[in-house]
Each structure stands twice: as structure tokens, then as C-alpha cells.
Simulated assay, not measured.
Amino acid sequence: MKYMIALMLAGTATPAFAQDHGHSMPMQPADPQDAEEAAEEEGSAEDTSPTSSAMPMDHSQMDHGSMDRPGVVEDQTTGGEMDHSAMGHEAMAMDIPSGPPLASAGSGPARAADAIWGVEAMRESREQLRDEQGGQKYFWFQGDRVEYRAREGSDGYLFDLQGYYGGDLDKFWFKSEGEGSFDEDIESVEVQALYSRAIAPFFDFQAGLRQDFAPMDRTYAVIGIQGLAPYLFEVDAAAFLSDKGDLTARIEAELDQRITQRLVIQPRVEASFSAQDVPELGIGAGLDTVEAGLRVRYHFVREFAPYVGIDQEWRIGQSADYARAEGEDPSVTNYVVGIRFWF
């Protein structure tokens, strides 16, 4: 039996350590007599060194099946298998918090920077922050319609200007409209000076004065609203009480329909009403006038856009009778060319 062990050891002997799957094989003597002596020494005495206790590996007893399964490796410490696919690495991703902040958040000193930069420097910085991030004032001016009107008879013109100065909540708002025909006296011109107060995210309440210069001087008290209605309709509605006791109202609505980022089609409707007849101004009680138009404009830049379009005016009821009495047509079609600008 000893000779068989010696022959086996001699057959597997190598001149240096052999590497097999990461395991070290000890160097064995090549001489059979030395192999026999080594076998006797191994059987008679216990050697605790890691290299001398190594035995030939029987690959037939190894479970190669686990090597073919992804995510499964042999545990070198226990001899078992480790399945990395079952370790749940997906659960290691941190969930984004969705609840309120912790109670400790913001619990530090309210003026901690004062200790570093000084009270005066931080006071100036905070005032600048309020001015630039919510408390600043803006100036805005727009020529909504500045146009030439080609029509039957004498061609005309129209301007519709407005703007404001103020903050997010309170503004001074001004408006001016006028129109007429070339080679004739201006038909109408008005200027409004209004206090505007935000009452909703997209609507302002407005109140102030309106002064007419043509066809005659007349002063009105104004109250109204202006803003962006659902579906992006821009709305401007106001009631006017004159110094003669005449009560009138006007509402305008327009909608920008974008064909491209620069090409816009804008339908627009305006209607005027009166609580009584005002013969000197050619205004009849009830629905006074209706104006509907369609304009197509192109934005070369956001602040400047020429346009072309068509606009139809109707005088209704008693107002139409006043127009006929003055030799005017109560229904007028205008072909318009103009510009829209703001800064």
C-alpha cells in the first residue's frame, strides 16, 4: 500500500509549485525511495503546514454545474454557493423623499451669517436680495396694434398702445387708443391712467380715469379687469362713467394661435355697450358696436412682428341709425397692415 501511495505521489510530482484552479500543489521528490520515505513520514507524523497537507484534487467530484449558472459562485470560506442575483442590489437605490422636511431643518440661528460677515454687510445684502428677487419694479410698453387700414372710400389708421410700471402686485397702467381717416379730423382718441392690483394669478383689477380728446373732450371714471382667461384668451373688460352721467362698457378678447414659433394667427373680437343713448357721440342704448378681425403676424424677433389681416366693424341698432344720418356706412371692412412691438 505504501508503494502505491509513493508511486502516485511520484507521478504527480513537479519541479515547482503547480497551480490548479488557484490551489498550490507541493513539490514532491522524484526518486521512488525518497517517495516511500516521504509516505512513511506522512503516515507516522502529523504535519500542520498548509502545503504538506495538500492532496491531489479529484476533479470528478467537483460540481461544475454552478460554474455555468450566472450569478452563482463558490464561497471560498464555507465551500457553499453564493447567489449574487438574490442579494437584492436593486433595493440599495435610495428613495427620493416626498414628505415634509425634518423638524430640525431650519433650526439653526436665523442670522448665522452675521457672525461671519457682520450685521451691516448682511443687512445690505438682504435688502438687495429683496429688491432683485420679488420687490423690483418693471417698465413694459407695447404697441398692440399700429396699423394702416385700406377700405372703401378714405383709407385710415389705428393705434392701440398700453404699458405699465410697477411690481408683481401693484402697477400703474396706462392705455391709449385712437383712429381716423387720412385727410380728415381724427375720429376718436382716448388715454387711460389706471391703478392695477393683482387679484388672481392671471388677472388684475383696474380702476382710474379715462380722458377723451376726440370727437369731444369728456372724462370718465374707469373700473375693470384685465388678464389671461382659460384657454389663453387675453381679456380686457371695463365700465366707464362719464362726467355727464353716461354709463358705457367695452370688452375685448384675443387669442394667439401659433402655427410655428414665429408665425402667429390672432383672432380678435371687441364689443361696446351703453346704458342709454348718447346722440352727441353717435352711441345708441344697448349693444353699440361689434368689431371682429383676424391678423397673421410674423415675429422676426419676439419684440417686433409685422402683420396683415382683415377687420370688420358693425354699428348696431340706434348707433347704426346715427351713422346713416351722418352719411356713414354702419358696416365697414378694413384690410390692415401693421406692426406689433414691445419693450
Results as ranks from 00 to 15, higher is better:
19 Q>F: 04
165 Y>N: 04
317 G>C: 10
112 A>K: 01
12 T>D: 10
207 A>D: 04
229 A>K: 03
80 G>M: 11
72 V>G: 01
211 Q>W: 13
141 F>V: 14
284 G>D: 07
290 V>F: 08
195 Y>H: 12
9 L>K: 08
268 R>S: 09
341 F>P: 00
185 D>P: 02
70 P>E: 14
97 P>G: 03
63 D>A: 07
86 A>C: 03
166 G>C: 07
302 R>E: 15
304 F>G: 05
3 Y>I: 15
152 E>I: 01
72 V>E: 13
197 R>S: 09
207 A>P: 00
81 E>Q: 13
303 E>Y: 09
225 I>W: 09
127 E>I: 10
112 A>N: 09
263 L>T: 04
300 F>V: 14
65 G>A: 15
199 I>T: 06
322 Y>M: 10
47 D>Y: 10
127 E>M: 12
250 R>A: 12
335 Y>A: 02
34 D>F: 05
275 A>Y: 02
258 R>I: 00
85 S>Y: 11
159 F>P: 01
25 M>C: 01
87 M>A: 14
117 W>G: 05
15 P>D: 13
338 G>T: 06
86 A>Q: 12
267 P>I: 13
198 A>K: 15
82 M>L: 15
73 V>D: 11
74 E>L: 07
131 D>W: 05
323 A>H: 08
36 E>P: 00
22 G>N: 08
73 V>C: 04
35 A>H: 01
95 D>S: 13
232 L>C: 01
57 M>Y: 11
120 E>T: 13
317 G>E: 13
107 S>L: 14
260 T>H: 09
310 I>Y: 05
79 G>K: 05
61 Q>L: 07
21 H>L: 09
64 H>S: 03
227 G>Y: 08
137 K>E: 14
154 S>A: 03
226 Q>V: 08
134 G>R: 11
256 D>M: 11
296 V>H: 02
261 Q>M: 02
99 G>S: 09
216 M>P: 00
34 D>C: 00
29 P>S: 10
211 Q>K: 06
320 A>M: 03
42 E>N: 11
214 A>K: 15
73 V>S: 14
185 D>I: 00
286 G>I: 10
223 I>P: 00
48 T>A: 03
209 L>S: 11
269 V>H: 13
201 P>C: 01
109 P>Y: 12
64 H>Q: 04
88 G>Q: 13
13 A>D: 06
150 A>W: 07
116 I>N: 15
257 Q>I: 14
277 D>Y: 08
173 W>V: 10
18 A>Q: 12
55 M>H: 12
119 V>F: 05
276 Q>K: 08
341 F>D: 01
266 Q>G: 07
121 A>T: 11
31 D>Y: 01
305 A>W: 05
239 A>K: 01
200 A>N: 10
131 D>F: 01
132 E>P: 00
142 Q>A: 12
75 D>R: 04
24 S>K: 11
64 H>T: 08
123 R>K: 14
44 S>I: 07
131 D>Q: 10
44 S>W: 06
139 F>P: 03
273 F>Y: 06
162 Q>T: 04
260 T>P: 00
342 W>Q: 03
63 D>E: 06
290 V>T: 09
322 Y>K: 13
238 A>N: 06
51 T>W: 11
330 P>G: 04
24 S>H: 07
172 F>P: 08
35 A>E: 02
